[in-house]
Design a protein around this nucleic acid. Structure first.
Lengths: 337, 337
DNA sequence: CTGTTAGCGCCTTCAA
DNA sequence: TTGAAGGCGCTAACAG
């Protein structure tokens, strides 16, 4: 049985309210009584009961995070940013891991409640308009990280910028024939189609450099290494094959690497390859790639959330996070024809 | 402002207690009033305020997990087991990520409190005797996962078994000259020296098979791929080199693979290699390795914790989890001499 | 079976 | 500056 505020008040010979004031750093306490109270607090190892505090304040002092968090290392890294930022505040973090749609629907229905959390971070999931409406009606601020919705505050990497970075790097090396390989673009009305925006960055860079944007250099298929290998083989056996390939994910870049090996092309001498994501394997294999600010995305999400809580408004917004090019050993100038 | 129990009582024309009884499935309610109350609940979209519930019950309905959770994928997997198991209970999960000693000490001091959590899971950290004493005095059950302490309930992989598995596999393939490579054993009084117990399993398997345990086949050094590469080179340039090497971690196995390449040995034709951990790279490279039941360790930890909470006792215990051998492409019969 | 009442521990007016 | 008292929403005796 931990000591209560009453015990402290008793021991210090003051009223409950005074102890409360001391705990909350109210200036309305004389120095002498403050010290007396603090002595009593120390003696009793007192610390206020969080639950009672929450009930009395009408706040949960808790932030929820709904995350598909074990499916990919990148999600974990974002969550790390959330936790790390929250650790220095008075808020607890409750984690809701989503791996199935049932789980997701359940959490979406049960978690966004005033009496459950003071705010909610949703990572890597683009809500439908209905789901967004539910979030808004919950009365608590909800911030999207690595996703975007017009009705909600969102933090997301700048895919267009990432695509530009990668392409510009190849352009700078002297490449003009650059292929793009990705999974099929999502619905054009989906604001979070990453590969689509990466492609737009690719196109923008090419056009700015006056390089041709060739339809036969765009290959799309299912996600994964194997499909990417097949697509890359098509690219590499073209009459006029590209001298560089930008893959929309590292996984797909691995497929490109395999295809190059099979076709007998050396990387980077004969073919340059750029990936996207900077997964663990990328470093091991020396893959040039684009890295997102994962930790920072979680951090910014929390910052925006805490601000929304403090101001009691959660205006829709969109914040783009910059990306970073990691140059390793799979890119070089094109073969001198 | 969500509806309160009072609103429901009012609308249903009953007393507060009756609503409470309905919420908590008490049999002491007539079917008719129960239905009336439930109708009111539905109409008002009522759901009980968790904070008030906690205060009244004197329980937090919350479990804490202290995890070094972003430093390695395996920790995340264990945490996943914790979350998944808790998801089907009434408990919330608060996550405390530890990446620095300051953070650890702070969490160890602040988190184990009755009014904060009902129970605590500590992952992959072996407490000192003092820390264990603090846990015990906190009055809440604390369960160790992937660690062990004589004063606390613990769940940990059976390292000895893992070492045996790996060695037996090599023995079965016909190897007799098997090297062991690991980081330096921890203090012998540390119950969680994994590489030490893996070595003991290795020795046990060799002895059971009547194979020699040679001192020159045991190499230890700093953790990491590079040191392992150096150690493996020593092993492979021995006058009578081993035909197989068991590395205490996949990372170190990667170093062995590199060393083999440098020395001009083919894997698995000339040299078999077994790792430990089954990291992501292991699958990519086809490394034969030992996999632990990571998810299950978190799950068991929670089960033990919930039981301790229910029974209000947390007797020290130790539960060993089995390990699994994953045979891939780095092991084969030894070269026929 | 059901309603009334007294807390759970803390914060916050309102008086003094 | 300080203390007393009411209330946050719910549960659990205790009477009826």
């Amino acid at each position: 049985m931990p000591a209560t505020i009453r015990d402290v008040a008793h021991k210090a010979g003051v009223g409950l309210a005074t102890v409360s004031r001391v705990i909350n750093n109210s200036p309305l306490v004389s120095e002498t009584t403050r010290q007396r109270v603090q002595a009593a607090i120390a003696e009793l190892h007192y610390s206020p009961n969080p639950t009672a505090r929450r009930l009395s304040l009408g706040k949960t002092l808790t932030i929820g995070a709904i995350v598909p968090f074990f499916t990919r290392p990148s999600f974990v890294e974002r969550l790390r940013g959330v936790e790390g930022t929250l650790a220095d505040t008075a808020y607890d973090l409750i984690v809701f891991n989503v791996e199935t749609v049932e789980r997701r629907d359940r959490y979406f229905a049960e978690v966004p409640r005033r009496d459950r959390v003071d705010g909610l971070i949703v990572v890597s999931f683009t809500p439908t308009d209905e789901q967004a409406a539910v979030f808004r009606q919950s009365g608590i601020p909800v911030v999207l990280v690595d996703a975007r919705h017009p009705a909600l505050p969102s933090v997301m990497e700048d895919c267009l910028h990432g695509g530009q970075l990668a392409t510009q790097h190849l352009l700078n090396l002297g490449h003009r024939r650059i292929g793009y390989l990705s999974d099929v673009f999502d619905d054009p009305f989906n604001f979070t189609s990453r590969s689509r925006f990466r492609y737009e960055g690719y196109v923008a860079a090419l056009e700015a450099a006056g390089a041709p944007v060739r339809a036969d250099y765009l290959k799309q298929g299912a996600h994964g290494r194997e499909p990417a290998r097949a697509l890359a083989t098509e690219l590499l056996t073209l009459p006029e094959r590209p001298t560089a390939i930008f893959a929309a994910s590292d996984t797909q870049a691995l497929g490109v690497l395999e295809a190059a090996r099979e076709v007998g092309l050396r990387v980077p001498e004969d073919l340059s390859v750029v990936g996207y994501d900077d997964i663990e394997l990328a470093e091991y294999l020396g893959l040039t790639t684009v890295r997102q600010l994962l930790y920072e995305s979680g951090q910014r999400g929390v910052e925006i959330l805490l601000e929304a809580i403090a101001l009691d408004v959660a205006a829709p917004s969109y914040e783009a996070l910059p990306t970073e090019l990691i140059v390793r050993r799979t890119t070089a100038p094109p073969p001198t024809a």
